[in-house]
Design a protein around this nucleic acid. Structure first.
Lengths: 161, 161
DNA sequence: CGCTTTGTTCGGAACAGTCCGAACGGAATG
DNA sequence: CATTCCGTTCGGACTGTTCCGAACAAAGCG
């Protein structure tokens, strides 16, 4: 078990802790270290030692989360899977809807709580916090995009989105 | 099932989605709407219809996460549980360590990947993103603390931390 | 000192989620 | 048109988690 193998396993552990299944997490680990960030299903099956059915569902969830893109070259028999360029940002932005629904929850709470009571202040503060985050987070992401290092020498094929 | 009940259930659903157990999530829901944000174990057991053993472990995890504080008044027979004032911020800040470890993972990746390769650029970009977030997020929290509305009329007892 | 109350810990049951092998539908090849 | 290759879906087995009831330790009260 070389260093690369160990790193793949550790990356898997961390993504698993974030709620991904073990297979999906390990797929991410492999793709990150793959030279061109791309692999096909048979390669992943061999690399990870999982059934192709498990791989199928794992890739499905990864695609739904916007972390992995499917790619089929013209006339290509099999399809390749590639890390989305903005996978990490996508993982962050994917949590914004959760913030929105918490905001809505806070609103419902405000309507139920006696105005002026400590509970009202508490819920109002919670509401304000989520509103603040919901406002400031996209701004932060914009700043990141400005300061961000270039995406690379484009030695890899870019996928049309 | 009145509106309050429904709201408690929905808050529970959302916190459950964030990784808390069902019981812990519902405890949070109850405490948020409780007039003074406080309750004791028998009340919670009756309110939620769970065994007190389940409640015990749920409260333990909530306390470890810094979302709930134990409180025993002097000479009080039983102890009360109260929402931490900064529960929502704590929930956010609790994820910073995860960012740090991802940064470390990216460093290990950089050491393994061939310099100049597309993979190197990709991992470098990932590293930069996490570094950016790790730097900017505390700053964002500071700004929140400045702009934040007051904590309330202090009609509730404050806990010594 | 016995009794009650409060909170934790333990063992077993129930459940959700994930994985695997097998079967299936589709598409390109010969 | 038969065959081969891919990817998805399905049923069953397994694992880890959560929950409950019961037993337990600790601390005040009579």
């Amino acid at each position: 078990m070389d260093a690369r193998e160990r790193l793949v396993a550790d990356i898997g552990q961390h993504y698993e802790r974030l709620g991904l299944s073990a297979t999906a997490a390990r797929v991410l680990g492999v793709l990150m270290l793959e030279p061109n960030g791309r692999a096909d299903a048979p390669a992943l099956v061999k690399r990870l030692g999982v059934a192709k059915s498990s791989l199928s569902v794992a890739l499905g969830t990864l695609e739904r989360y916007g972390l992995v893109l499917r790619f089929r070259g013209p006339g290509e028999r099999r399809e390749s899977y590639q890390l989305a360029d903005d996978a990490f940002e996508a993982a962050f932005l994917g949590k914004l809807p959760a913030l929105e629904s918490f905001l809505a929850l806070a609103d419902r709470g405000l309507a139920l709580v006696q105005p002026g009571s400590p509970a009202a202040y508490r819920v109002e503060r919670m509401r304000a916090f989520y509103a603040f985050m919901l406002r400031e987070f996209p701004a932060l992401m914009r700043r990141w995009h400005d300061e961000a290092p270039p995406a690379g020498p484009d030695g890899e094929a870019r996928l049309e989105s």
